[in-house]
């Protein structure tokens, strides 16, 4: 690599590094603060006296979490949802993207299907019809209510369609030449060379499923069925100090347990923090280099 060693270029380089470090800090500091609060004494946290180092160090919050059956249960619901939802999303996205990536000559209704998909991305019936639909389908309290409404991730499908279309024609023709049918083509040629795109959409749907809380809130009738984020949302929701009557005071004192809430946030963060680097590896690995010689 050739380095530009003039003074101004080096200054620019330093400025850039410092800027990037600052950006990095804005990401890390809130997380670090949350971790610090989670190990602090409840009263110091409520008094806002904890910055970057735990004050009154203890691990009571984490012990409480481990002993809290609702939390553990919600965690399992979330894991189930991610596996099921992520799996269905992946399967449907791949199976839809492949035919849609063929030209209209090969697949005559391609454009119609495409518009059909895009339409659902732009317009929806709104939340009340969805609620009524789910109720009539009897899906309340069922994991399917969290998984099926978004079973086809349109945005991911479109991403994947575009990626598939960018695969050189020569490769497809070579496959045909050797007698590959559509299934063989998809599973032995397209999927192996599309790992970056597949990793991206998988990450999207995993993070999406892991973070979603609103559908859990409206379709699940009791907290045993809440996914983790819905459960946590219930805990950390900011209660307005206005318009409280005395019977709600106890609620207020419960909510001020910032330590416990912070600990729950930390625990909820861990799975995504683990999944990210695992998937990120594939961003670099998917290479089409060398598959076609011009």
């Amino acid at each position: 690599m050739v380095m530009n060693r003039t003074l101004s270029a080096r200054l620019a380089q330093y400025a850039l590094v410092i800027f990037m470090i600052l950006v990095l800090l804005t990401c890390i500091i809130p997380i670090w603060h949350t971790v610090a609060v989670s190990f602090s004494h409840k009263s110091y946290a409520a008094a806002g006296m904890v910055d970057f180092w735990p004050k009154g160090f203890n691990t009571i919050a984490y012990q409480q979490i481990i002993a809290d059956p609702v939390f553990v249960n919600s965690f399992l619901v979330s894991v189930k949802r991610v596996l099921l939802g992520g799996g269905i999303n992946f399967l449907l996205a791949v199976l839809m993207a492949y035919p849609l990536s063929r030209s209209s000559q090969e697949f005559r209704f391609r454009n119609i299907y495409m518009w059909f998909l895009v339409f659902t991305m732009l317009f929806s019936g709104g939340i009340i019809p969805l609620y009524i639909l789910m109720k009539t389908l009897g899906m309340f309290n069922s994991i399917w209510a969290l998984v099926l409404p978004g079973a086809v991730p349109v945005f991911n499908v479109i991403l994947l369609v575009n990626f598939f279309r960018s695969i050189p024609k020569d490769l497809v023709e070579a496959g045909h030449m050797d007698g590959a049918g559509p299934w063989y083509m998809l599973f032995r040629v397209f999927i192996p060379i599309s790992t970056p795109a597949l990793a991206t959409i998988t990450l999207f749907s995993i993070v999406g499923h892991w973070n979603a809380f609103f559908d859990g809130l409206i379709f699940m009738r009791t907290p045993e069925h809440y996914p983790l984020q819905t459960y946590i949302q219930q805990l950390v929701v900011q209660l307005n100090t206005q318009n409280l009557d005395s019977s709600q005071v106890e609620l207020l004192s419960k909510l001020s347990n910032q330590t416990l809430n912070a600990a729950k946030l930390v625990v909820a963060m861990v799975p995504i923090l683990i999944v990210y680097p695992l998937i990120q590896r594939h961003f670099i690995h998917g290479i089409m280099l060398g598959s076609v010689k011009e």
Partner: peptide, 11 residues
């Protein structure tokens, strides 16, 4: 069903 605070109201 049961829920907490604002979530209850929304639901």
């Amino acid at each position: 069903w049961y829920a907490t605070g604002d979530d209850y109201t929304q639901k």
